[in-house]
Amino acid sequence: MTPPEQTTVALELAEIRRSVEVGFTEQRGQLALLVQRGTQVDKTLDEHERRLDALERGRWPLPSLAAVCGVAGLGMALWQAAGR
């Protein structure tokens, strides 16, 4: 038979081991949740980037149109000034 001290030490070590395993399991679960959230954030950012690109592509003619109108106005002003 084993002395009572060795049995007590073995039981305490088994309890510590179980406690450490439970802690590691909790940490793995929390890390898995963080990875999942990170993946969702990446998907959301990609979607927002696509939407922003679409908005920027649809907006490019406005500055060009303003420049054309400005040049046309300058041309009309010069034409009127030359005509008088």
Rank of each mutant, 00 (worst) to 15 (best):
M1I: 06
T2K: 10
P3T: 10
P4Y: 00
P4D: 00
E5M: 06
T7F: 02
T8A: 14
A10Y: 01
L11N: 12
E12Q: 10
E12T: 08
L13P: 01
L13F: 10
L13N: 14
A14Q: 09
A14W: 00
I16S: 03
I16A: 14
S19I: 02
S19P: 05
S19F: 08
V20C: 03
E21S: 12
E21R: 13
F24Y: 09
T25D: 05
T25W: 01
E26K: 10
R28N: 14
G29S: 04
Q30F: 12
Q30K: 15
L33H: 12
L33C: 03
L34A: 03
L34I: 02
V35W: 02
Q36P: 02
Q36W: 00
R37H: 04
G38S: 04
G38P: 05
Q40G: 08
Q40V: 10
V41D: 15
E47I: 11
H48F: 09
E49H: 07
R50Y: 04
R50N: 07
R51A: 06
L52I: 14
D53M: 13
L55R: 13
E56Y: 13
R57E: 08
G58E: 01
G58M: 01
W60S: 14
L62A: 13
P63S: 00
P63E: 01
P63K: 03
S64R: 08
L65Y: 06
A66T: 06
V68D: 00
C69M: 05
V71I: 14
V71G: 04
A72F: 01
A72T: 01
L74R: 01
L74E: 01
M76H: 02
A77P: 02
L78W: 15
L78G: 15
L78F: 07
W79S: 09
Q80N: 15
A81K: 11
A81W: 13
A81G: 04
A82H: 13
R84L: 04
